[in-house]
């Protein structure tokens, strides 16, 4: 029987290489998971055992992978019991990972200007997508990252100038400069070099600065808190742009078995409940908002 879905997820006992804490309860975890590192695509996530005392795993999106070195980087925020226990895990320990899970972002080959918008712990899939676009070198992406707590990296003034944006909006994630990808940061807080406001306001600035033809090349990818994604979906609708969003939901199995992590999706046959784990986490924004 033809069963192409079989053996597509891997359970790996992943050694923790580093576990770095940042302000605002943020952590970046680097673990050794060669199968996941090789097979993950931007938008994929992993289902992690935080601690043997927790009956449920936690879904955490992938920020970076190195297929050559076999590691996976995860960014998460300490918000409850599971992530608190996870934050105590030390380098050298092992952690059970199931992954890579989910339908990835699918950029439209005909659109050359991907606009990536990530907020808070929604930044990782945008970083992953940006790095993959950098490796392909076929498009001219623009990345906007937003956070209400200090960013989990050291923002630096970008060397990639964007005359269409206010000159004082200059801070970027250094990796993006390394990849030659223009990126700007946004926050309601008064962070140096950051746009003071919502990510969608900065995105609007940028979209308006484009001529009609260039704007027609744009496609939006986004991940972040629900109200932010709603605003991104509205922005995309306003400018008539395709938009893919990555969603989050409480999750039990992570393999499509329990239908616990659903979201209502509009289809030609009417609304249906789709599983965020294996049908998502990436959905067309216009179908879920």
């Amino acid at each position: 029987m033809n069963k192409p879905h079989r053996d597509t997820l891997y359970l790996e006992n992943a050694e923790i290489l580093s576990h770095e804490a940042f302000a605002g309860e943020q952590f970046i975890l680097r673990i050794v998971a060669p199968e996941c590192a090789t097979k993950a695509q931007p938008g994929s996530f992993v289902h992690l055992q935080c601690d043997p005392l927790q009956p449920m795993r936690r879904p955490i999106s992938i920020m970076r992978v190195s297929p050559e070195e076999g590691w996976v980087d995860l960014l998460y925020k300490r918000v409850g019991t599971g992530t608190t226990l996870l934050s105590r895990r030390q380098p050298g320990e092992s952690i059970s990972l199931l992954g890579p899970i989910g339908q990835p972002f699918r950029p439209d080959p005909s659109r050359t200007k991907p606009l990536l918008i990530g907020g808070g712990v929604g930044m990782p899939p945008m970083v992953f997508l940006a790095e993959s676009l950098y490796q392909e070198r076929k498009k001219q992406p623009f990345v906007i990252l937003g956070s209400e707590v200090p960013f989990p990296f050291n923002p630096q003034p970008s060397q990639l100038l964007l005359p269409e944006l206010p000159a004082d909006v200059i801070a970027t994630m250094p990796l993006m400069d390394d990849w030659g990808i223009p990126c700007r940061l946004a926050s309601q807080q008064d962070f140096a070099g950051c746009f003071q406001g919502y990510v969608t306001e900065l995105a609007r600035h940028w979209l308006i600065s484009l001529n009609k033809q260039a704007r027609g090349e744009v496609e939006i990818f986004s991940c972040g808190p629900h109200p932010m994604l709603e605003a991104v979906a509205e922005l995309a609708a306003e400018f008539d742009l395709p938009c893919q969003v990555s969603l989050e939901e409480f999750m039990a199995c992570g393999v499509g078995g329990c239908a616990g992590c659903v979201v209502e999706v509009q289809t030609a046959e009417g609304p249906v409940m789709k599983r965020v784990c294996v049908d998502g986490p990436v959905f067309e924004a216009s179908k879920v908002f």
């Binding site: 597509t8 891997y10 359970l11 393999v255 078995g257 239908a259």
Partner: peptide
């Protein structure tokens, strides 16, 4: 019932 969908979902997991 209810944990493994309609019988094929868990076969995604290698092993």
């Amino acid at each position: 019932s209810g944990c493994v969908g309609f019988g094929e979902e868990y076969t995604r997991v290698k092993g």
